[in-house]
Design a protein around this nucleic acid. Sequence first.
RNA 1: GCGCCCAUAGCUUAAUUGGAUAGAGCAUUUGACUACGAAUCAAAAGGUUGGAGGUUCAAAUCCUCUUGGGCGCGCCA
Length: 553
Amino acid sequence: MIRQQVLTRLNSVFVKYLNSKGLHNSFSFILKVPPKNIDSDFAVNAAILIAKKLKMDHKIVAKQLAEIILRETFDIIEKVEIAENGLINLCVRSEVIYGALKKILVEKNKYGSIPKENNKKKILVEFVSANPTGPLHIGHGRGAAIGDSLVRILRYLGYDVTKEYYLNDVGNQMLVLAESTEIRYKQMTDGEIDFPPDHYQGGYIIDIAKRIFSTGRDISEIDFKYETIRDILRTIKDDLKDFAVEFDNWFSESKIAVVKDENGKTKVDKICEYLFAKNKAYIKDEALWLFSGKFGDTKDRVLRKSNGEYTYLASDVAYHKNKFERGFTKLINLWGADHHGYVARIKACVQMLGFSGEALDIILYQLVSLTRNGRSVVMSTRSNEFITLREVVDEIGKDACRFFFLLRDPNSSLEFDLELAKKRSNENPVFYVQYVNARCNSIIRESKNRKNIISDIEAINFTLLDTKEEKNLIKKLSAFCDTLAISEKTMSPHHFTTYLIELADVYHKFYEKCRVLTDDNNLTSARLKLIEGVIIIVKNGLNLLGVSAPDKM
RNA sequence: GCGCCCAUAGCUUAAUUGGAUAGAGCAUUUGACUACGAAUCAAAAGGUUGGAGGUUCAAAUCCUCUUGGGCGCGCCA
């Protein structure tokens, strides 16, 4: 928020300067927090950029700009220095810093948020969407954590967001799945029956068969596919719930690939007819091909096989059309990086349906590579060699697990060592951050024993918070807004884990240096307000990550 | 063979998207609990950002080449 304030003011200064030189185009510049060794709050590169435009020496431009900044923004900036390389360093006035703290105290858990506006994009975020053939494994956990946190951030920023899980409950794999249960069921009365190696080996299939068996129905009355999917789906929902992820909508593929309208046609039938009629698809060797090669994909793709069956792509085209038909103006798909080959194809489809390619964002996250004591563990659902999300959540806890998954850029692969995760659960930085909140609340509890603490913000003398540690802490609190901005820009929540760790670092330093409960009632009251601000920001930040903030640990 | 992604300290990795002396955590070494919680702090050490060119006032970041790794390339889902 401090940065935003400075940015706005500087922008008008620069535009005015450019106008005076006869330039009227818009101008964008960078306002950064300089490295530690530089004693200033912000650095701006405008002089270098403007000098280039005007073909002048940047030292001269910097000197002129520095003078104007001092004159025009003296109310918020108290010091301007020109660095050797042409960057201009700025120090903000203390009042600006205290103003930021007051704003946090007033706005509380709305700080930096934007009220829901009707004119903002209506977004559909589709994530996890694991096939209902078994429990969620650890890899799905990363997608779940990233997707859910991204939605929390987008909602904080005023977007109307819906979380959706696409359920592939149609196709051959479902038949194999149903058959797996049926064979396990039959094995219970006939031990001679072999279990085929290409079927689902997981023990959960046996559990499902046992449950069906216990109902005592006749085998002719049992719909194995229905029973199996229902059972697995319940497990998936429970696993997600305990991971603090709840979807707004579960979209079943059968809605578009099985359900027929009054003319006996499915949505997939209709989309294929439409694409063919519009010359976006053609028939070759009795199969229906999509002209995807003309829309950015490497080649054309089959929609309907020569035997009349549809491919997975056909459902997906219909599904994405359906998303737009439901009024969403922005679609975000979060996929594991192993699906990257599919990106060009589905983007091509969206454009062929007449929508802008920008209406669909596909975010890929690199896969979680599992290791156990440094040795890699290979996962596969059919072979039953996988670690479930539930196992890990039960072992290290929801908070540590989510924080760990959100620690890194989605584009960077994540190594998850099972033994390490268990052993070092105390070393997960989530506790470092949660400890800030616990320490703060401990101080607040202690302060209840005191009398004469000033609680009215207007009566607080904030200028007493004048040590370097206190000012750094407030500046860091205010950077919450910058973190929101960069998260939106990059569509990634991982900036918040980094930010919270940095904030914790600044807080703990403050804690060592500045005692909150002192003999000076005015100072104590002011510092207690600062503590209040810390609690607000840490809780807000952890909440955006879906991580709890306990008052005691 | 073609395509996408990655490579940063011993290990896991960050870098406000092109800015200054590349930040953390773990591991290693040293110091700090007789007032708010030591799940903490202070300090040391650790880097040619895989390599080579190029663009730029400025490159971990952009371009080209190259090496190593992950993944994907079906009328499968």
